[in-house]
């Protein structure tokens, strides 16, 4: 089957150059061909009540990481905020 690599790349926020395109198309098609051999199963996905989780109690923790520390990996910080290119929706 044909996969619209450009569309998928856009959804994934990846940029695929023209010379990479054919390679990805081939590899993705091969993989999709493999997975399409899966049999059809007449069933629905269900939620398993036996696989329940414990919920967290609504209590704050005292331990806090200072702002400078927690933002130290950010590529660009101004006035305690992370900076990104101008974004208005």
């Amino acid at each position: 089957m044909d996969i619209d690599i450009r569309h998928i790349a856009k959804l994934s926020r990846l940029r695929i150059s023209d010379d990479e395109l054919a390679g990805y198309e081939k590899e993705m098609s091969d993989i999709i061909a493999m997975v399409e051999a899966m049999p059809d199963i007449e069933d629905e996905l269900t939620v398993d009540p036996d696989n329940a989780m414990t919920l967290r109690s609504d209590e704050t923790v005292s331990e806090k990481i200072p702002r400078d520390e927690i933002l130290k990996n950010a590529p660009k910080v101004v006035a305690g905020c992370v900076v990104v290119p101008k974004t208005v929706e």
């Binding site: 905020c81 900076v83 974004t87 208005v88």
Partner: peptide, 14 residues
């Protein structure tokens, strides 16, 4: 997102 006319970019407060 915080914007300012004086600033070229947007600031993110999480």
């Amino acid at each position: 997102l915080l914007h300012s006319d004086k600033f070229d970019g947007s600031l993110v407060d999480f």
